[in-house]
Design a protein around this nucleic acid. Sequence first.
DNA 1: TCCGGTTGTCAACGCGTGATGACATATGCA
DNA 2: TGCATATGTCATCACGCGTTGACAACCGGA
Lengths: 188, 188
Amino acid sequence: MGFELCSRPRNAAATRAAILDAASRRFMAETYEQVGMRDVAGDVGVDAALISRYFGSKEDLFLAVLDNCGKGSDLMDGDRADFGRRMAHELVYGEPNEGKMGWLLIMLRSASSPKAAAILKLSSNNFHAPFAEWVGGRNALVRARLLTGVLMGLGVSRDISGGFDFDAEECETMCAWLADTLQGLIDG
Amino acid sequence: MGFELCSRPRNAAATRAAILDAASRRFMAETYEQVGMRDVAGDVGVDAALISRYFGSKEDLFLAVLDNCGKGSDLMDGDRADFGRRMAHELVYGEPNEGKMGWLLIMLRSASSPKAAAILKLSSNNFHAPFAEWVGGRNALVRARLLTGVLMGLGVSRDISGGFDFDAEECETMCAWLADTLQGLIDG
DNA sequence: TCCGGTTGTCAACGCGTGATGACATATGCA
DNA sequence: TGCATATGTCATCACGCGTTGACAACCGGA
C-alpha cells in the first residue's frame, strides 16, 4: 500500500480492479457509512473522483464488491469433514478482519445500515443458495443460515473486545465447542 | 410518539429520561453513526440542542444509554431451565428490534463503529460479568460469550433478510436446534 | 407584581461527505 | 510527428451532521 503511487501505468482495467479490491477490504473492516470514497481512493493511490467515474455511485461500488466477493467464497474451500475445526480455529485464534470469512464480514458490518442492507438483501441469496447446496442434506438452507449466523455472531463477539481475552484452557474449551457445533450443523 | 408535543410539562428529569429512552430504542435499531441527534430529539418532541445540553456529546449520550441498559438486562429474566426455548422462540418468531435482547442489539449495531466500539469495549464487561455469574458452572465466561455470540449472530442473520423466510417445518427445525444448543450452553 | 433562574427553541457554524464538470496529461493510431 | 481519445486530477457544489451561543417562554419565591 503506497508504492502504487509511483509509476502506475495508465491501465483502466487494472486500476478498476485495484479499486474493487481496496473497497472489498474496507467494507470487510468498516461499516458501509464509514467507508469513504476518499479512503478507498487513497488506498489505491488515485483520486476519489475516479471511483465515481468507474462505478457510478457508492451504492454501485458496494454492489460490485458483493458480486465480486460472492463468486469465490472461501468458506467452501477445504474439506467438509474438517469444516468445524477449521472455522473454530479461525474464529478463536485467527486475526480479525482476515482469513476465510470475507463475505460474512461484509454482511456483518453492513447489515445494520439501511442503504447497504437493502442491497445486501438482494445479494444475500446469491451467497446462501450455493452455500446451502454445498452443505447439503435435509433442511440445508436452515442449517446454512444457522452456520453463517453462528460464525458472524462469534465474529462480533470477538471484535467487541478486540480478540477473545481468554487463557489457553478457555480458548481450547471454546474452540472445541465451536468445532463440534459447527461440524454437527454440517453433518446434519 | 408525537403526542408528547402537546403540553409536556417543563420537567427536566422527565425529558432527560425520555431522551434516554428514545436514544436507547434508536441505538437498538440503527448504527451509532446512523442515529442522529435530530432523530432522537424528534422522537421525544424536543429540539436537538437540548440533548447536547443534558448529555454533553453524542458519545456521552451513548455511554449513558449503555449504563442504563446494562442495569436491568432482560436476558436474565425468567427461568434458567427454559432459557434455550425462550430465546430460540424469540429469535425465530419474535419481532425484530424488540423483545428481550436490547443490550445485545446495541452491541450488535455499534460493534463495527470505531467510536462506539471504543465505548462498548469498556462497558462490555459490565454486561458479561453478571451474565457469566448468572450462567454459572465451569468456564462460565466462555459459555456466556458463546451464548451472546450465537444470539447476536442469528439476530444479524435474521435482519439481513428481514425475518427468517422459512416455511413452518423449517422454522420448527431451526427453533429446536437453537433451543437445544443454547440450553446446552447454559447447562454446561 | 416583578425578578432570577430553569427549560426549551432557533439560527448558524465548521466539518466531512458523495458527487460533478472542467481541466491536464499520457497513450496509441494515422 | 500530430491529433483524438482514454485516463486521471482538481476545484467545487450541495447536503447532513454534531455542536454552540444567543434568544424566548415559563415558573416559583420575594
